[in-house]
């Protein structure tokens, strides 16, 4: 089908949990592939062996800069994709690979890992560990509207994706500390509890209504900060939640 968008999936030093999250759209995944997405390249789910020219590339995992192949792959991904989406905590912020320090067999020199944004320009972030099927779905549908939609749809998709583009532009470091520095220290926290729910490792509890981060548990995925309503809140888009949710659900019928 000509009017699908072409999508690639580059797998670097990640755990394939992001791939599973994508597949966890269940029947919705089949609809996505039927109608909107032509999956050109994806190591686990598709058969192609090499990175191809695509509209949108999802990248899972961080880059081991001591591994020539990984560095080549991320560069090639950038060259061959119109839009690069960093999928999951590792690609966006390093996640657990931030803790890596090498010295392990059979490649003791594999010690330095960087989020992809430290090596290439990244357009959109989907943080979290694992990222959620619904977030991947929403971004995929919006990317489709951005590239193939009417003027109105393009505008909506742009508005929707803008905060995720800003996250990508903002940097490659996020953990519970971002909640402290960018929300609490900035006098913006109102104690809703979102961060505690979003944390995938139960590192955040709400003490007297404010987040307490157990930094020895935090894995640096960035979910708490980006889910926080005070990290970004684009009222114009979110106030249309009903219509947008309905449109996405209808698109996946």
């Amino acid at each position: 089908m000509a009017d699908k968008i072409t999508v690639g999936y580059t797998h670097l030093s990640g755990c394939t949990g992001c791939t599973v999250a994508l597949a966890d759209n269940y029947a919705g995944l089949l609809t996505l592939l039927d109608k909107y997405v032509d999956l050109k390249y994806m190591p686990t789910l598709a058969d192609a062996r090499h990175i191809q020219q695509v509209d949108v590339s999802f990248v899972e995992g961080s880059v081991c800069i001591n591994d020539k192949l990984a560095v080549e792959e991320i560069k090639e991904t950038r060259e061959k994709s119109a839009i690069v989406v960093a999928l999951g905590g590792c690609a966006c912020y390093g996640n657990i690979t931030r803790f890596s320090r090498g010295g392990q067999q059979n490649q003791p020199a594999h010690e330095a890992y960087l989020p992809i944004g430290d090596l290439i320009k990244v357009d959109v972030y989907i943080p979290g560990c694992a990222p959620t099927p619904q977030m991947i779905r929403n971004v995929a549908v919006m990317a489709y509207l951005l590239l193939k939609g009417t003027k109105e749809q393009k505008d909506l998709a742009t508005a929707f994706l803008t905060p995720l583009m800003k996250l990508a532009a903002a940097g490659t470091s996020a953990c519970f500390c971002e909640l402290m520095t960018n929300v609490i220290n900035q006098g913006l926290c109102m104690g809703c509890g979102t961060c505690a729910a979003a944390c995938p490792v139960n590192a955040i509890t709400m003490e007297y209504g404010k987040p307490q981060g157990e930094r020895d548990l935090c894995i640096k995925c960035g979910a708490c900060y980006s889910q926080c309503p005070r990290s970004f809140f684009n009222t114009d888009v979110i106030s249309q939640y009903e219509a947008i949710n309905e449109a996405i659900m209808a698109a996946l019928q």
Binding site: L12, C64, I96, F99, Q104, Q105, Q107
Partner: peptide, 13 residues
């Protein structure tokens, strides 16, 4: 690539 989880575990809780 080897992320070295056994090595990075040392010293953590």
């Amino acid at each position: 690539p080897v992320r070295g989880v056994e090595k990075l575990a040392v010293g953590k809780t």
